[in-house]
Amino acid sequence: MIRDKGIGSKLWRFAVWALAGLFVLNLLAVMAAVVVNSFATRWLGTWMPAGWTTRWYFDAWREFQLSSVVIVTFQIVFTVVLISGVVGVVTAYALARRDFPGKRAIVLLFLLPLLIPPLTYGIPLATVLYQVGLGGTFWGVVFINLVPSLPFVILVMIPFIEQIDPRIEAAARVFGAGTWSLFVRILLPLLLPGMLAALLLVLVRTIAMFELTFLVAGPTSQTLVVSLYYAVFASGVRASQSIDAMAVIYMVTTLFWLVLALQFVSPTQIVARAKQQQAT
């Protein structure tokens, strides 16, 4: 590693670290503000609230009917993860192993939803879903969430499958493995770590996916983040502590899965298909 000793680069280093520190400080303060407010009896014009209470959590849980919202959220999210996982891994396998005419067009098809703003394809898709009677239903929300999550699984899985040596499969064939036992005994164990990572990432992203869910969610198919949006949107109707209590419930739900996901992937992979093999 190269270190420069000059006063100029010391100042520059200090400035960069100060900026990074300032950002992290503000970020943590934003989250802390939500948590503190959710436990506050009254918080007006002071650094810290006047007193502490947990009653907003009971209020929020009852008022926003969170028990059903949380159940619906997980039903939707797990359905999306299951479908995009099965379809995505199968598709990624074909794309990783074969080179065929039109492959570039198909890869582009899976890249487009990640490059186009969600509302651009969300509004036409929501229109179609409402016309076939799926708007506001459970399956409507699942379908609209598949559009970004399926390509995501595929794009995460392709490089993962490519690094599995095809000769392993060939060897299994030589020893007489049929397609089924090849899949169950050879491929599945090798693919499992990558699948787990991809599916946990999709899970975290789907819990937090607001725009698309918002377009088709009906009263019985609202996810946590959409309920939170409506609560913040209509703030003034309810105590801000109650809304923040709900935000904390949402935060804990998301962070639980995030922590789980981080056991298998590096944080950089949540935004990018990081090429981190070289990191030492």
């Binding site: 934003v30 996916m209 607001f210 949006y229 913040v232 809304i243 998301t254 949540i270």
Partner: peptide, 15 residues
């Protein structure tokens, strides 16, 4: 730093 990305804009807006 990955926290705000995963929590999303609705939570950040509330905070």
């Amino acid at each position: 730093l990955v926290l705000p990305v995963t929590l999303g804009t609705v939570f950040v807006a509330d905070g």
